[in-house]
Design a protein around this nucleic acid. Structure first.
Lengths: 214, 214
DNA sequence: ATTTGTTTCAAACAAATGTTTGAATGTCAA
DNA sequence: TTGACATTCAAACATTTGTTTGAAACAAAT
């Protein structure tokens, strides 16, 4: 009962995620999803009750677990190299964000989707924030705070972390814009240079460049 | 012929911009726009031929000129205080982006709209890039480049500039997210602290903190 | 083979979408 | 005032939207 046709259900979840990420919620129709998933149109309402709920289920069953897997690979990467330095922490974060264990296409989808949700918050944003963003913030705080005791107040540190996320997300969501401005292709070579830049800029931004924390 | 009913045309342009910024192109209907603009539904097609063209006209006649006005006030601010320092340049840029000559609500709309367009590029993005982003990039290059001769290659400098934009835009587009994470209200006091932070982080990021460029 | 419950399907549903129409209203110079 | 034009309007247009329906197909246990 739950094994066979999960096939259809999963196919819908996957194609829906790809399409939502690519075009946004309103620009994708149920017909488009079910066509791509090669199933009947009624399947969406049968398995998910509504288009809106399908959108939320994409986050609950696909996006959040994938993001958490990314945190694990990020944490594992960190635990490999003790003791930490801000440089290594940021390096690992940037890699996880721009490379990670996923393929290029998966990663692009993954980031695009959350950027759309952040930009157009629905009720699912709270679930996502509680299950992924806040935990990640705590991980980073735990690993970076010791190096920056001068951040006496919490807010200053929070803004630093948020700024780093800002840059990381920006270089995802404005990909077309950036290639249009710089005239460069967003290939792997560029991405490598991008990571180097992001790490340096973020580290500098944190105020870690004068000190021997590299 | 063009004075009287410009009233209607302008009302449509203004309400359309507000709604597009608030909800995005697909989430706004022509009926919604004309209701808010207190005019007949057919007025959109009469004055703009299509909804899509109305969207592009919003950029051509409203958004781009407003952005250019912002550059002027930014440039004027800069020319007031010679000689420049990176600190002052970034300070002026951050102020222009988060405060500027516009009211809070206008500025929020203005940034939201371009963020949506960047995130969901249509054909108008090229016009916007050519008329606003590239010129602004040139202004910044002109004022900042002299302080960073170590940026021998162009790309490195470009990425620095883009990163600063990334942070600035991020703190606009993820406003709800940020208040949800930090638990703080996005009021004027917070905004002031935010600007201070952004200037420091960006300056550090550029690599200008060790030197006496403050 | 029959029953039970689940999943798929084509068809239809009401509601909402952007656009078009043609008459009515307004504007203003001749 | 008349005529020519621009603008507004209510109504209707054909499509597309998300959702529902009820029958058919399927699976697995009795």
């Amino acid at each position: 009962m739950t094994e066979n046709n999960n096939n259809t259900k999963n196919r819908i979840l996957e194609t829906a995620e790809a399409l939502f990420a690519q075009k946004g919620y309103h620009a994708v129709s149920v017909r488009e999803i079910t066509m791509a998933a090669k199933c009947n149109m009624a399947a969406v309402n049968y398995h998910f009750n509504s288009k809106k709920n399908l959108y939320m289920e994409v986050f609950r069953t696909q996006w959040v677990p994938r993001e958490l897997r990314m945190y694990e690979s990020f944490s594992k990467e960190l635990s490999k190299i003790e003791p930490h330095s801000p440089n290594l922490v940021i390096q690992a974060l940037a890699s996880a964000y721009l490379e990670g264990p996923l393929t290029n296409e998966e990663l692009k989808r993954h980031r695009q989707l959350i950027i759309r949700e952040i930009n157009n918050p629905t009720e699912v944003i709270e679930y996502v924030a509680d299950h992924t963003m806040r935990p990640l913030y705590r991980i980073l705080q735990q690993h970076l705070k010791p190096f920056f005791p001068e951040h006496s107040n919490e807010e200053s540190f929070t803004l630093d972390i948020l700024s780093i996320f800002g840059i990381l997300l920006y270089f995802n969501y404005s990909r077309p814009m950036i290639t249009h401005i710089t005239g460069e292709k967003y290939d792997n070579a560029f991405k490598t240079r991008l990571i180097t830049h992001l790490v340096r800029f973020s580290l500098n931004g944190l105020g870690a460049n004068g000190k021997d924390m590299q």
